[in-house]
Structures are given as structure tokens and as C-alpha cells.
Simulated scan of single mutants.
Amino acid sequence: MKSNASVLASLLILLLALLIGGVMTGAYELSATELWWALTGRAEELEHFLVWQVRMPRLVLAVVVGAALALTGAATQGLFRNPLAEPTLIGVTSGAMLFAVLMLVLSARLLAGFPLWMQQISVSLAAFAGALLTTGIVYRLAAGRGRLNVTTMLLAGIAIAALAGAFTGLMVYQSTESQLRDITFWSLGSLGGANWTQVAIAAPLIVVGGYFLRRDALALNAFLLGEREAAQLGFRVDRVKRRVIVWVALLVGVCISLTGLIGFVGLVIPHLLRLWRGTDYRQLLLFSGLLGASFLLGADTLARTIVAPAELPIGILTALVGAPFFLWLLLRERRKTVFL
């Protein structure tokens, strides 16, 4: 088995290669020379604008969002002690979807007369607020007498997700044809329209959140033995749970608010690395972030080119790649169990 240092180097090289390939690839392709001129400020105005204002912010956003989704997926799996868990279970996605749909349907009436920039960011702000609000409700339902029951949180998350889904369906029923098209596009996820302002908002939050999640890596390792055993090892179990939930909700909420719903990154990437490198969360969290960034970066580049000059929603690609791959992993694990 490769050492952790060699795996880290391989993942960084893969990420860099995909980043360079993503900048060069698209409806308007760039040669290596044109890319170098654009990076050094000697390119024509068109190439310079294409690289720095269109592709680079989009690719950097793909990196930070992909890293955050995979990282939070790994942390959620550690929290629930279940390799099939993902942030959807604590109500983040359902809340973001409901509030985004509410804003898409009601913005014409609620924001009439407001500045254009406020109308443009209203859906993102609403999705972020919805993600945090529903996660907070699930947390309050699961917390009692100073303790946080993970099983109750799972059940509460399922109930809140169903309730939010019902209200989302009602709003979709009330939407116009134009609003329905916007809702469908948002629910499929997209990195189109990314800019440096979005990167400046998302990147610091995701870096800080990733740092604090990784600080709890030893506690997540201890959780593999059980909560009682983790407490006996000196970890404050309920505090760890609260920290992980808060950071997962914050990071996923930021991602959804900027890109819409992008599935399977937080489910497949940590599971794959767990099969490859084991369950040590000190490495698993870091490697998940890097591989998740590469996965979403590659998916976005493919989404921009597979039907060029049009663009395929990235959520469709992640599902097309992630779902069959995850089924293959499940079948692989079942065969191993049978033979054992």
C-alpha cells in the first residue's frame, strides 16, 4: 500500500492536472501557449477575459465546493458510524431546496422594487438560511437533557425532509412555467455564472470549516468504537457531535446556496477512500477533500464540453457517474461478505 505522503502527492498532481485541463478545455479551446500568455498577462483581451473572469472562478469554485461536499460526507459518516450516511440525513438539503423554491416562486412579489443585485442573490441567501434553519430544528428535536441522540437525529432528519419535500411540492404546483424551469435547473446543480465574489465568500468558510472538522478526526476515530468507549477515552462526545453538525450544516449550506443541489459527491468519495485507505479520519478527511475537489472539477469540465456550446447540469453527471459506481461498490462488498 502506498504511503500517505505518496497518496497526498498523487491527489495533488491529479487536482493540478484537472485544473489545467479545465482551463484549456471548453467551447473555445486554448493551447498551452495561449494559457501561459493568459496567466502571465501577455494574452489577447479575449483570452485573458476567458481565463480570469470566466473559467478560473468557475474552476476554483468547483474545487472548494467539491472538497467541502466530500469532506462533510466523510464527517457525517463518522458521526453516524455509517458509511452510507451523508449530510442529507440532517435536513440540510431539504431545507435549502424548500427555501430556494420559496424565493424562486415568491421573489417577484416579495422583492418588487428592490435593487437588481438583491434579487439576484436572494435565492442563494434563502437556500443558505433554509439549510441552517432545518438543521437547527433537527438538532433541537434530537437534543434532550444535555445529550444529543444520533438515532433520534436521523429519524427527525427523515421526518423534516419529508415535510420540507411536501411544502416544496406545493410551491412547485403553484409555480409558473418559467419558475418551474428555474426550479428544475437549480435542483440539478450548476457552476455556471460563478464569479470571484462567490469564491471569496465560499473559500474562507470552507477552509476554516475543513480545518475544524479535521481537528475532530481523533474523536471520529474513537466514535468507531462506540460513544461510550469514546467518552472513556476522554472525548466530550456531545460537544464533538455539536461541532461536527454545525460545521457540516454551514459548509453544505454554503455550497448549495451557490451551486444548487449536487449529489453523490459526499457519499461516493469518502466511501471509495475508506475502501482504499482505511478508516483513519486523520487521513480520510484530507484525502476526501482533495479527491472530491478533483471529482467535481472533472465533472464540471465534462459538463461544459459534452454538449458544447450548451451546458449539461452538473448534478446529472455526478448522478450518472456516482450512482452506478456506488452500486458497484455495494455489490463488491456483498461478494466479499458472501465469500467470507
Results as ranks from 00 to 15, higher is better:
L250I: 04
F223W: 02
C255T: 08
V252F: 00
S257G: 15
R215M: 14
T259S: 08
I262C: 10
A219I: 09
R243T: 15
G263W: 03
L261I: 15
N221Q: 08
R236F: 10
V240S: 12
D216K: 11
V244T: 15
G260P: 12
N221P: 04
T259R: 08
V246Y: 04
T259P: 05
C255L: 15
L258T: 14
L220R: 10
V240D: 06
R236W: 06
S257E: 03
I262K: 03
I245T: 06
L233P: 06
S257T: 09
L224A: 13
W247Y: 13
A249V: 06
V252H: 01
E229Y: 08
A219V: 09
L218T: 13
K241E: 07
D216H: 08
R215S: 13
V237E: 04
L250P: 01
G266Q: 09
V244P: 06
F264H: 02
V237T: 10
F223C: 02
R228N: 14
L218K: 12
A230M: 10
L250N: 00
A249M: 14
D238Q: 12
E227K: 01
G226K: 04
C255V: 15
D238T: 14
V265A: 02
E229Q: 14
A230V: 12
R239Y: 08
Q232D: 15
A230Q: 13
L233S: 10
A230P: 13
Q232K: 12
L220N: 11
F235W: 13
E229F: 06
A219E: 13
G234A: 11
A249Q: 03
R236L: 14
L250D: 01
L233G: 09
I256G: 04
D216A: 12
V248M: 03
V265G: 01
G260I: 12
G234D: 08
G266L: 09
E229H: 12
L218R: 14
L220P: 12
I262Y: 00
D238I: 14
